[in-house]
């Protein structure tokens, strides 16, 4: 069972994606998104902080470590399911588009 509150926005999608391989802290997420999208998605600190708070609230991620001012987060099974759901939705969208476009 994934997320109940509708599809993920693009920044939400990439922030959730950043946790798939390992735990991450805020600055690492920003770097990951920048690298992954080759600078196309520029994650503002306000956006990142708001999304982390929202994901924590919805139980998609959990806090694993607090080291001074640095907090590290890990994706939960619910978060993985939400990501999978979004991935399927995007695949379906892309497939629909491809089909019509050819």
């Amino acid at each position: 069972m994934g997320r109940e509150k509708g599809p993920l926005t693009e920044p939400m999608y990439y922030v959730l994606m950043s946790f798939l391989r390992r735990d991450m802290c805020g600055t690492e997420i920003t770097e990951f998104v920048d690298r992954k999208t080759r600078g196309r998605v520029n994650l503002g600190p306000g956006t990142l902080y708001t999304l982390l708070a929202r994901f924590l609230d919805e139980g998609l991620i959990k806090e694993t470590q607090v080291d001074g001012r640095k907090r590290t987060y890990r994706i939960t099974p619910k978060g993985r399911a939400a990501f999978q759901e979004e991935l399927d939705r995007l695949r379906a969208c892309a497939a629909d588009g491809e089909e019509e476009f050819q």
Binding site: T9, P45, G46, T47, T50
Partner: peptide, 14 residues
């Protein structure tokens, strides 16, 4: 310095 909010939706959430 980048804008604090890079999208409208997350600004709206805040």
């Amino acid at each position: 310095a980048p804008e604090l909010y890079s999208d409208y939706e997350s600004r709206g959430m805040n």
